[in-house]
Amino acid sequence: MRSSAAAGYLVFVLLLTSACTARKASTPYVPALANASPGSPTARGTLLGDYQWAAAAPSLQEAASRWKRFLAVHAPPQGEYEDNFQKLHVETARLELLRVYYLLGKKSEGDALLKHLDPSRQH
């Protein structure tokens, strides 16, 4: 009887945790750093257009997905940039993704990205 009650309580806690996580994932996303520049939206496929698209993500979960996609396309290999515009946007995207990971409770993903941002690893 007692073990049955404990199992029921455990299921209740798991369901509650699951529900909370789902709510967090759908929480509206408001960028902390990636404020849009004045002017018209730029076409997707360009660095600026993809940045605006990621910054306009409707939820935390979608923001994580969009910032990851942005970095996969626009972060240069071996950290060799074309100009400071690219560096500013790529570094801001990494900070936004880091923040979103922690807000979503994805500690391991956040910590992995944080290590990538370690200043001692950079020139």
Binding site: G39, E82, Q86
Partner: peptide, 24 residues
Amino acid sequence: GHGGSVNLGGSDANHAVSPSGVLE
């Protein structure tokens, strides 16, 4: 910097855009 309409060898066609729509 930049130019054209395709990204090429680390050079993007364009980056910054002014509020009035002038391309970098």
